[in-house]
């Protein structure tokens, strides 16, 4: 991170080599075009450089920090472009069950993520995906499904805690 903070090109390249692909992938899924995903990826690395002094490894992993920046920037862009939070993607298909055979260099993070998501039921995966990829708030999900808001919040929390526990034993950077 010191290298990134200093604008060190090698540090930027190292981060790029490791995280550009999942960031670009997330941008493509959320924003729907390669052009928008490319802009998002650039913005994420620039934001990471600007915020590098505030990154605290005691508060979370670098990979999580970068992906949170990416997701927040993408959601902000969607809100700015549409004026409202709108669902953009569907849904459970976005959560792959297995590594595909043609991935010559699967990321360690992806392997661990897929294993962690195996702790969820299909209904929990769908619920989290509707919020994370679809941009639906708990209130919107409650209205769509005709169930109490408190129930949706509880289910979201329960699902995230399951993933968190499944992640606890993983050795992510």
């Amino acid at each position: 991170m010191e290298g990134l903070l200093a604008g060190n090109e090698d540090a930027v390249r190292q981060l790029y080599a490791r995280y550009a692909r999942p960031i670009f992938t997330l941008g493509l899924r959320l924003l729907g075009s390669a052009e928008a995903a490319e802009e998002l990826t650039q913005d994420v690395f620039l934001a990471a450089w600007r915020k590098a002094a505030r990154f605290d490894p005691a508060r979370g992993r670098l990979s999580t920090w970068l992906m949170t920046i990416a997701h927040n920037l993408a959601v902000d862009r969607l809100r700015r472009d549409t004026g409202v939070t709108k669902p953009h993607l569907v849904l459970v298909d976005e959560v792959p069950e297995t590594l595909s055979a043609d991935e010559d260099e699967p990321l360690m993070e992806r392997d661990a993520a897929i294993r962690a998501l195996e702790s969820l039921s299909d209904a929990e995966k769908r619920l989290l995906a509707r919020a994370y990829f679809g941009g639906l708030t708990a209130r919107e999900i409650a209205q769509d499904d005709g169930i109490p808001l408190g129930t949706v919040k509880t289910r979201l929390r329960t699902a995230l805690i399951k993933v968190r526990r499944a992640n606890e034993d993983k050795e992510w950077p």
């Binding site: 390249r13 999942p22 670009f24 997330l26 992906m67 998501l117």
Partner: peptide, 24 residues
């Protein structure tokens, strides 16, 4: 922080697509 890490798991689980040439 812990819940944020759990949520980011979804992003990492996506099947990766190649990034455009020259983006780096």
């Amino acid at each position: 922080s812990e819940l944020g890490q759990a949520a980011a798991t979804f992003a990492f689980a996506l099947a990766p697509v190649p990034v455009p040439n020259g983006l780096g």
